[in-house]
């Protein structure tokens, strides 16, 4: 599972039925690549979170048939990045 930061909310009015009612977030991973993740936890902007990808992302959603391959599974209590020089 990866560590990512929530950038902003993503609104998607027209979507397939399996994506209705799912809140979407714009994410940025540790390499700066931008993703879109589904959010069953309800995370604020700027928070560092743990995400699951692949079919584990569907199991992380309330219903298995939601059309996602990246889901936020938890908010990290304390994380700093880029990491301080050791």
């Amino acid at each position: 599972m990866e560590i990512m930061q929530v950038q902003e909310d993503l609104v998607c009015t027209r979507s397939v039925k399996q994506l209705e009612g799912i809140s979407l977030r714009v994410m940025k991973d540790l390499k700066g690549k931008v993703w879109c993740a589904s959010d069953p936890v309800g995370v604020g902007i700027g928070k560092w979170v743990v995400t699951a990808s692949g079919s584990a992302a569907r199991w992380a959603m309330p219903s298995y048939d939601s059309a996602t391959d990246l889901t936020i599974v938890g908010i990290i209590d304390q994380w700093e990045w880029p990491e301080p020089k050791r």
Partner: peptide, 11 residues
């Protein structure tokens, strides 16, 4: 260890 108190139930 990564501490994540606020997380989904089935974890």
């Amino acid at each position: 260890t990564l501490v994540s108190t606020n997380r989904i139930k089935n974890l």
